[in-house]
């Protein structure tokens, strides 16, 4: 069992009377893309700042690559904060060399990597220009290069896609997938669930400072699926309800959404229906992350009126 990339143990953080993070425990497995999800103000940024040793937890412990979080253990981490920008009057090359220098990357290595990444991002013509002359999208690409200039093992990205146009979202997403292929660990926060759905292996849902759910996304989908199947059939609603294992049935455009009792195999129910009725089609839909989120919030007994 390989060591977890990041381990957070029972961490609490208060600001005055406001609890920003409440008894949070989570583990980020190595080589995965890990989504930290939740609405604005849920505690994502505070959690990330604690991982980065920018803010200290009031209680609990945080370990990064097996060591307590500190500037030293964080040299193998690349961080893209939520509040991010650049020195506007600096030239692109000087700026990247500076950010590499404070990561203790020697100038030659830094130059080589900057060359490679500026090519990959199609920014080479802008090398000698001032940051001010770059578009917002280009500046964000520069920030991304700055995050990975020291070839970190772990990437921590706070809302990395906010403010990016769709082309650049795609570009960054492809790099993240590439990094996972290199066995790097990527943690990113977002309040947009569709982004996480496409990208994440693992997720952790936070709302109101508390974790409501975490785990492998595929497993979670399996766990939250199965309850509802979609059936197109000539059977009446009553007939469906009479089938053992069915607790609810609702008509919906020519078919039914059939809710099954806990632990009932969808296959068994379909089979019974087949025996007596005509079944044109049936499907077991993977739940959307949004549905999982709402279900988990309900299960946790948290009154959450907002959807993410």
């Amino acid at each position: 069992m390989p060591m977890n990339a990041i381990e957070i143990e029972n961490v609490t953080k208060r600001f005055g009377r406001f609890t920003a993070v409440d008894a949070l425990t989570l583990a980020v497995p190595p080589g995965t893309i890990f989504g930290l999800l939740g609405p604005n103000g849920a505690g994502k940024t505070t959690t990330i700042r604690m991982i980065m040793d920018i803010t200290a937890p009031d209680s609990g412990s945080i370990r990064v690559l097996g060591r307590p979080a500190s500037r030293e253990s964080l040299t193998r981490v690349g961080y893209l904060p939520e509040e991010r920008g650049l020195y506007r009057r600096m030239r692109v090359i000087d700026h990247l060399l500076f950010l590499a220098a404070i990561k203790e990357v020697d100038a030659d290595t830094a130059r080589r990597r900057i060359d490679r990444w500026l090519d990959a991002m199609e920014l080479r013509p802008w090398l000698g220009r001032k940051v001010d002359e770059l578009s917002k999208g280009m500046q964000q690409k520069i920030q991304f290069i700055a995050t990975i200039i020291h070839d970190p093992e772990i990437l921590i990205l706070d809302e990395p896609f906010s403010g990016l146009d769709p082309i650049n979202v795609n570009l960054i997403r492809n790099f993240l997938v590439e990094f996972r292929g290199e066995r790097k660990t990527i943690v990113f926060s977002t309040h947009v669930l569709e982004q996480a759905e496409k990208l994440c292996d693992h997720i952790c849902l936070i709302t109101r400072s508390k974790k409501v759910l975490d785990g492998d996304l595929k497993e979670l989908k399996r766990r939250f699926a199965g309850n509802v199947i979609r059936v197109s059939t000539d059977a009446s609603r009553e007939a469906i309800l009479a089938t053992p294992g069915v607790v609810a049935a609702a008509a919906s455009d020519g078919g039914f959404h059939v809710t099954l009792a806990d632990g009932v195999e969808p296959r068994a129910v379909i089979q019974r229906l087949f025996e007596r009725h005509r079944v044109d089609a049936f499907s077991q839909k993977d739940p959307e992350l949004e549905e999982i989120y709402l279900q988990a919030v309900r299960d946790a007994g948290i009154e959450e009126t907002r959807t993410i």
């Binding site: 600001f15 103000g41 940024t45 200290a56 009031d58």
Partner: peptide
């Protein structure tokens, strides 16, 4: 114990 980020 620094202040909370703007979002929080």
């Amino acid at each position: 114990s620094e202040p909370a980020p703007a979002g929080a």
